[in-house]
Amino acid sequence: MPMGTFDFYANVLIPALNHGLWISVKIIVPSSLLGIAIGILVGAGRALGNAWLTRVLNAYVALFRGTPLVVQLMMWFYGLPSLSLWLEKNFGPGAAPVADLFRLSPYAASVIAFAMCSGAYQSEYIRGALLSIKRGQFLAALSLGFTKSQAFWSVTLPVALRRALPGCGNEIVYLIKYSSLAMLVTMNELTGETKAIASLYFRHLECYLLTALYYLALVTLATVFLRRLEKALSVPGERID
């Protein structure tokens, strides 16, 4: 199948990569938002919760930071259905509604895996920021008659999030790149598409180089956006570098 270089780029590679890019974005955006939400809740729980809550959340973070993301992804997608089989075998057809919950689509498995892993890391940044804020501001809010949760949401958290933002942004940059692992659970995202085309046409160098540029563009875009966000949220008089 002889094909000109221009034809290859214009009619094969670039359309495939654009399609993959779209899938990647559909994975990255919800996973990173979910990851931040998990990070805030878990980070707050670890910084301010009681001993038991802290222990449970610490275990979550230890598990998801301590094991390879690939292994986690495989568990979500290939591991959980085994649980479904076991449930149906032992509890009969009545267990089907529960068992079905464990059969994740490739997309769901990817988003859940990335969000859970990202959330564990994000919670570290949030927890650190919360602990760095002097208890004084919280006390001052209580002394004015705030409830503890009002004081947390309107005083401690807004200050902490600003402090955590650079770290959280860094984690999002990581997430953009590790989203490529979704190809292992049959997602035709950016890297998956590239691999297919590269193998089919045996043009690995060009394909992967161009893919690298796509990721670079995504990361650059995210970095610019995060910088703007940091600037927009910065408090006058406080330095950001």
Partner: peptide, 13 residues
Amino acid sequence: IGMIFQDFNLFDH
């Protein structure tokens, strides 16, 4: 009861 603290404890943001 109004409370004034040694290190002000203003809300930074």
